[in-house]
Amino acid sequence: MNSKEILIFDISSEYGHFRKYNTTTSPLTYSIPTRTAIAGFLGAILGMEREVADGVYPDGATPVQEFFSKENSDIAIQIINPVKKENVAMNLINTKKSFYNLTKAGRTQIEFELLKNVRYRIYFGLKNNESAFNELTERIKARNHHFSPYLGLAQFTATIDFVDVKQSEFIENSKKRFIEISTAVNLSKIKEEQPIDFDYSAMYSANNMPIEMNRNREVQEYSEVLIEKNGLPVKAKVENYYRIEDYGNILFL
């Protein structure tokens, strides 16, 4: 049996914002954190070294993007609270007038689309690094975060609640049946025709999201990610998935 140990924890905040890459003047937000955002979130908890300049890291430091790459880690995201959004005007520095002189620059108001009363469940596995996995688990249990993690913007400090550490079971869907997946579904991992069994009473949303970055913060992979906005399972013809007792079937991004 192919299985792996999975850390399960919840993240929540009054507000969150995960900016869509193709919005400019009025920033829009994804309905869930991107995989790259969660990688940064985990790096903050562990206190991983940050850049000293663009693409430049202290000697011996492994960039967060590489430490939590798809090759080294598994991340799945489940919606717990239904997705709610509202527009809020935020005061920003008016860099059109001056970039360095804040008094001269003054303020400008920009309307942001924000997520309201968010709560997500994160399923996390780390390959070939038991010590880092255990440290992350203990820090989350004790709420001993090296840096304060936040949901997209620094003012949206996150609350982290430890849920469980469980063994997951790898299952092949050889009969190509529809499987109820509790987490966001990366559609690039599904090769079947008509791969989703839509429930027309549900509320679905799909967005092209960044999945992986390199150390220079250049996106290496985008994928179409499907969610159900109220947190209901998505029925999909996945080739394989992981089952976690008491928590359902999950699919890593």
Rank of each mutant, 00 (worst) to 15 (best):
S168G: 06
L42H: 03
T183G: 04
D74L: 14
L7S: 01
E111S: 15
L226D: 05
Y200N: 14
I211D: 02
V88Q: 13
I79T: 03
V88R: 13
Q155L: 15
N94H: 12
S73C: 09
N208A: 10
I196Q: 08
I160D: 06
N240P: 07
N81F: 04
S131Y: 12
N208E: 07
L226W: 09
I79K: 03
H145P: 00
D197M: 13
E130T: 12
A132H: 10
F156I: 05
S174M: 11
T23M: 08
I171D: 07
L7W: 06
P82W: 11
V234R: 11
Y57F: 10
I45V: 12
I38D: 03
E218F: 09
I250E: 00
V185D: 04
A105Y: 07
A236I: 01
P233E: 02
H145D: 00
S12K: 03
E14W: 10
I79A: 01
A142R: 14
Y123N: 01
L153T: 11
T157K: 15
I6K: 08
A37L: 02
V238H: 04
F252N: 08
V118W: 00
I80D: 08
Q109T: 15
E172F: 13
S13I: 01
N101M: 10
I181T: 06
Y247G: 07
K70D: 08
R177K: 13
I250H: 01
Y241G: 02
L153I: 15
L42Y: 09
R215F: 09
T103K: 13
G16L: 02
S26Y: 14
R217V: 08
A89G: 10
V165L: 06
A202K: 13
V238R: 04
P82K: 11
K127T: 06
A53P: 05
D164G: 02
E130Q: 11
L232V: 02
Y21F: 15
A236R: 03
V225P: 02
Y222W: 06
L114E: 00
T23L: 07
E51Y: 11
V83W: 00
S13N: 10
K20H: 11
K20D: 10
E172T: 12
E130H: 09
K20L: 11
P210L: 06
I122P: 09
D199H: 12
L187R: 07
R107L: 15
V64A: 07
N186H: 11
E49G: 02
V234C: 11
G125D: 04
I227W: 00
N87I: 15
S205L: 14
G231H: 05
S148N: 15
V225Y: 00
A158E: 02
G47F: 11
I93Q: 13
I8S: 05
N128K: 14
S131P: 03
N22P: 06
T103M: 09
V185A: 05
I38F: 03
E113C: 13
E71Q: 10
K85G: 00
I32A: 05
V165H: 04
